[in-house]
């Protein structure tokens, strides 16, 4: 390895340490406090297992956790992608017609405000105990941030840009395709990032209802199952797995936006 390459690697490692160091320290301190509380108050494992017990439970149940991670991850990703597609189409419709926006936007807000745990049982009745229902719940949870963000992006067009297109006779379709949609891409990325965390929450909430007594095994299913057997250590392991899934999905959206949409991101 040349001197320059070594220096570059050293720089990268030190940059990464600077970037992730504070967050890692917080995690180490939190685990230490957890260990102290569980040990100091002599908490029963069923109430608060020690970090090592959670780690052991994760290792013992790794196959089940991995299978559930895959199922929930797939449902969350499918729901997020569907919400991005559907949300973008709805936003285009909202941006093109004030009447459509006035008529339907309150119902998009309704999707955000309605308690998902209240409508999940209804969706199961209508759609069945299956993967599709988990995806539908995820779409409902993810839709609002995307519609809200993309609609704002499509409508927040600088007057000078709008004048420029009008000057050269660009019609509504040309303005939409060549101006509004490109200008809204950073807003779509923002909405997708917000929704990426919500997607995991939506999928797990749906799995609380869908998974019981079926072949479907997601993280939500595992959680309800382990809760029934008071396997707190495994339950906490599932919580950490779902958090990691949320972080992974967020990272995936962030990474995709940075690489594929570099020109937009540089511009914002």
């Amino acid at each position: 390895m040349s001197g320059a390459a070594k220096r570059s690697l050293t720089t990268q490692v030190s940059d990464a340490a600077r970037h992730w160091g504070p967050a890692l320290w917080v995690a180490v301190i939190a685990v230490a406090i957890w260990q102290l509380v569980a040990w100091g108050f002599d908490m029963p494992s069923a109430l608060l297992p020690k970090p090592a017990e959670v780690w052991r439970a994760a290792a013992e149940n790794r196959m089940e956790l991995l299978k559930a991670l895959y199922a929930t991850g797939l449902a969350a990703a499918a729901g997020l992608l569907a919400a991005i597609g559907l949300g973008s189409l709805i936003s285009v419709a909202f941006s093109q017609s004030r009447r459509v926006r006035l008529a339907f936007f309150p119902y998009v807000i309704f999707l955000q405000t309605v308690p998902i745990v209240a409508i999940a049982p209804l969706l199961i009745i209508w759609s069945g105990y299956q993967f599709r229902t988990v995806v539908i719940v995820t779409v409902i949870v993810c839709l609002f941030p995307i519609v809200n963000s993309v609609t704002a992006g499509l409508m927040a067009i600088d007057r000078q840009w709008s004048d420029l297109f009008s000057l050269y006779g660009a019609g509504r379709a040309k303005k939409l395709a060549r101006l509004q949609i490109p200008a809204a891409v950073p807003y779509l990325v923002l909405g997708a990032k917000t929704s990426s965390g919500l997607a995991v929450i939506g999928a797990i909430v749906a799995e609380f209802f869908v998974g019981n007594g079926t072949d479907y095994d997601g993280l939500g299913t595992l959680m309800t199952h382990w809760q029934g057997f008071v396997k707190t250590d495994a339950l906490i392991a599932a919580v950490f797995t779902s958090t990691l899934l949320g972080l992974f999905l967020f990272g995936l959206v962030h990474g995709t936006s940075r690489t594929l949409l570099r020109r937009w991101m540089d511009a914002t």
Binding site: L164, L167, Y168, R178, P182, A267
Partner: peptide, 24 residues
């Protein structure tokens, strides 16, 4: 029309920006 701000499309190259009126 030359606007108060350059009003260039940030996602397009300089050449693409100049091409825009001809394309429109």
């Amino acid at each position: 029309f030359v606007f108060q701000q350059p009003a260039l499309l940030p996602w397009a190259s300089t050449l693409q920006n100049v091409l825009l009126p001809l394309e429109l």
